[in-house]
Amino acid sequence: MSTGREHAGGTAPGPGRVPLGRGSAWTTRLAFGAAGIGNLYRSVTDAEADGALAAAWDGGVRSFDTAPHYGLGLSERRLGAFLRDRPRDAYTVSTKVGRLLVPDPGARGDDLAHGFAVPATYRRVWDFGADGIVRSLEASLERLGLDRVDIVYLHDPDDHAHQALREAYPALERLRAEGVVGAIGVGMNQTAVPTRFVTETDIDVVLLAGRYTLLDRSGLDELLPAALRRGVSVVVGGVFNSGLLADPRPGSPYDYAAPPPETLWRAVRLREICERHGVPLRAVAARFPLGHPAVAGVLIGLRSAAEAEDAVGLLGREIPAALWEELRREGHLSDDVPVPGRERGR
């Protein structure tokens, strides 16, 4: 992928690796989203988590994304345990900053109010100050058992944009200059604040969740064009819009809520078109973002070996050009939306 900026940091990323911005970090086209192995919504055993990671690794996945938020550190600990005996230059790890985990010994019950089936032994404290960023990263490195991470994202600074821009970003910039991290960015499920970071700072990458999919292409309005102009890479998460594009039926969530009837109808129609061309909707949804030249890879949340094997298979599917053309004819994609096979800039 041409980012418009030179890749720095020594040797080239190598086959199957896409550089992120101007830093030394890279991603594989499919990245492992590790919220699931942090017991997102339901408990996952250590063996199941390890099996998911192993299946992804065997399928060629070498990029792994986690965060302190995911299971109050459980995701980072499980990922670190899996990677411990693997060559450090063979993979990349991204984690996030912005929420400090503070011990809460008096707490009772679980953390399901925040989406994770783990004991509520910590409470999250928002902190986008420079000191909070450093403390958060130090704690993540300890949980991961690593001396560095490849990518650090500012995690959901929706209500803290000013502090994130004025305090957190300069702290990350210094860490990048010192070589503690290879690339820095912002991870959100909206486009306005990431667009500010792209245009006002020198970040390397945006992790954009749910805003560049077959159903929601709001990322194409400003963020993706700005990223392309500035040489900022984009990793797209939420390619299934939290479930509807994986299994379009009544009851399937769309952005963590019930879908509007018109959106459900669109998803069902998308599935019908894909099946007529012999391709699962899931594969088309997973591949679609890779058509844009600013998109370096897609991130899919995985919690089992079967899910990991399925995701690897989805990214390997060939999508007939006739399928994309039918989606255009029916108005599901406009003519200016790039699709795989018609990528620009690669």
Rank of each mutant, 00 (worst) to 15 (best):
H7T: 14
H7E: 07
P13N: 04
G14F: 14
V18R: 12
G21V: 02
R22S: 15
G23H: 07
R29K: 05
F32S: 03
A34Y: 08
R42W: 12
E48L: 08
G59I: 14
R62P: 04
S63N: 03
P68Q: 15
L79Y: 01
A81C: 04
F82Y: 11
L83N: 01
R88N: 04
R99F: 04
R99T: 05
P103W: 12
D104C: 01
D104Y: 11
A107N: 11
R108H: 15
H114C: 05
F116W: 10
T121C: 12
R124Q: 14
W126Q: 12
I133L: 06
E138S: 02
E138C: 00
E138K: 06
L146W: 02
L146P: 00
H160K: 11
A168N: 03
A171D: 05
R176V: 02
E178R: 07
V180W: 13
I184L: 06
G185I: 03
Q190T: 15
T191L: 03
P194L: 05
R196P: 04
F197I: 05
V206T: 06
L208H: 02
G210I: 06
T213D: 02
S218F: 02
G219N: 05
G219C: 06
P225V: 14
S233P: 01
G243L: 04
L245N: 07
P250Y: 14
P259T: 04
P260L: 15
E262C: 06
I273D: 07
C274G: 01
L281H: 03
R282L: 07
A283G: 08
L299R: 01
I300D: 08
A306E: 10
E307K: 11
L314T: 09
G316L: 10
E318F: 02
E318T: 10
L323P: 01
R328K: 13
P338D: 03
V339K: 10
E343Y: 09
R344C: 12
